[in-house]
Amino acid sequence: MSNLHLDVKQMIIEALDLEDIEADDISDSDPLFVDGLGLDSIDALEIGLALQKRYGIKLKADSDETRQHFASVNALVALIQSQAEK
């Protein structure tokens, strides 16, 4: 697990005030929504805001694309890395 992976997991736990869960419990590749971590649409909004605050990420207006970025920790890490390169 890279530092960024760990950082993203901690961001998720803090932003969503999740209980009974540690960064180690979150898989890099499992889905965050519905299955896996079981997050919901309000969590998606919170993650969007947290990404903005922590990494300065601007989401695209395309919700399908955003949904793909939010699919897993790996996808979020890829999003952060791709914006950092710009």
């Binding site: 909004l45 989401l59 207006a61």
Partner: peptide, 11 residues
């Protein structure tokens, strides 16, 4: 429907 503020903004 929109989900994120960014979508509202763009539309």
């Amino acid at each position: 429907q929109c989900q994120f503020s960014e979508e509202i903004f763009q539309r």
